[in-house]
Design a protein around this nucleic acid. Sequence first.
RNA 1: GUGGUUGUAGUUCAGUUGGUUAGAACGCCUGAUUGUGGUUCAGGAGGUCGUGGGUUCGAGUCCCAUCUUCCACCCCA
Length: 461
Amino acid sequence: MRNSKPTKPKGTRDFGPAQMAKRMYLLDIIRQTFRKYGFLPLETPAMENLSVLTGKYGDEGDQLLFKILNSGNYLSKVEGDPVTYDAQSLLPKIAEKGLRYDLTVPFARYVVMNRNEITFPFKRFQIQPVWRADRPQKGRYREFLQCDADVIGTKSLLCEAEIIMMLNEIFARLGLEGYEIAINNRKFLTGLSAYLGQPNRENDLCVAIDKLDKIGQENVYQELTTKGFSPEALTRLSPVLAVSGTNEEKLQALTAVFSGTPEALTGLNEVQELLGLVKGMEGNLATVNFDPSLARGLSYYTGIIFEVRMLDGSIGSICGGGRYDDLTGIFGLPDMPGTGISLGIDRIYDVMEARALFPEQVSGSTSAMVVNFGDENLAFALAAIARLRKAGISSELYPDKAKMKKQLTYANRNNIPLVIIAGAEEVGANKVTIKNMLTGAQTTIAAGNLIATVNAMLEKN
RNA sequence: GUGGUUGUAGUUCAGUUGGUUAGAACGCCUGAUUGUGGUUCAGGAGGUCGUGGGUUCGAGUCCCAUCUUCCACCCCA
């Protein structure tokens, strides 16, 4: 018999109390802001049927789905020898469920299944973990928490404008600076593709130009050439990639170039209109950057798309999203336009940690500990802890009659600021001693003044 | 999925061309202080060197496999 050391699956993390305090601080701000903008909470199961998940994220996405083996004798439905199957044809026979890959598709499923109960437009937010069988890397995990806010059932650009307002508000409250909200429009990209003489090739086009910041123009052109884009197309593309200046200047310049391409113009006009709406709501436009090379991979986007990134490039995008005008169509409910965003709180956490942006007092420790002297003070200690809790003071009684040294060490390690000491000496005189662990000072007071004194001392800290 | 990288006490890391009993710092435990933590001092525990094979008289050190870590690509939060 040999004990093996326990391990944790690749790309997963534990969050101890110290990390949780910070995560909850972050989540509280996001949750409050979502609610402030009228979004309602929703949760869906960790697992979905594979029929719901597959085919929504492209071939690459399907590869990254975690599949759940059927219960029981899962090989019984396989005809013949399983070894003769390839993975793709064997899969549907042995697995019919998978872990969710994002929150948008489960949301679409929910909307379709509950279309008669939902009042549209429907605004919901959802904060739950998602799983991807990706190879872990910096800021990239196999299990991570997404914070989504979506509006479904309206084509109004006001939704996009509110998303920008909301993002700015969240980052302002977190004290996070040095980010940009990049925006673009899929319609513009579709028009661009046509303009280049390669209609319906916007996917390949997007994948390539999305990398502009990273690999430079030359490499983008090389990639496009290998994908069959002609030299003429690249010549027509270059003024688009080279466009610079303020958002207004970029829009103006591109509007002139695309005067003969209606779809691209529609896209540009929407961007223009969106910026106007944000301005009208007194939003901060300094963080908003119209980036005609922003593409985003997920194929369901059809309108304005977003991406939030740190200007120092320290980490991948911390938020992504966009408009999808027909997400529920694949589930048999057409004409259900929507738009939404997803915040990656694991990455935001990493950035905030690196910049020491978490406030000191997020630790959320217990306020007071009562020292356990055993029978000597059991009755008194029980009454004291009850009174403290009735008064709303987070407190605990050390569970064992241990040495005072050990009990104080415990309080110290857990950042408990006040320790209540009442042994035979104090109990006999109907008094208690309160020790302030920060200063080391301690006072002995009448037992009846315990709550008032503790409150006063906590107030001061 | 492709290419690379990493693994030695709880943690961060040393460990010479392969050579006795694998080290340090911090942390942890005990005591100085039988009712006082955080500072100080004294002492102590803790490692089949990621795992499994191989080469060798001899492997933490070399080779293979596997897992893990981190990174780039793909893609993405």
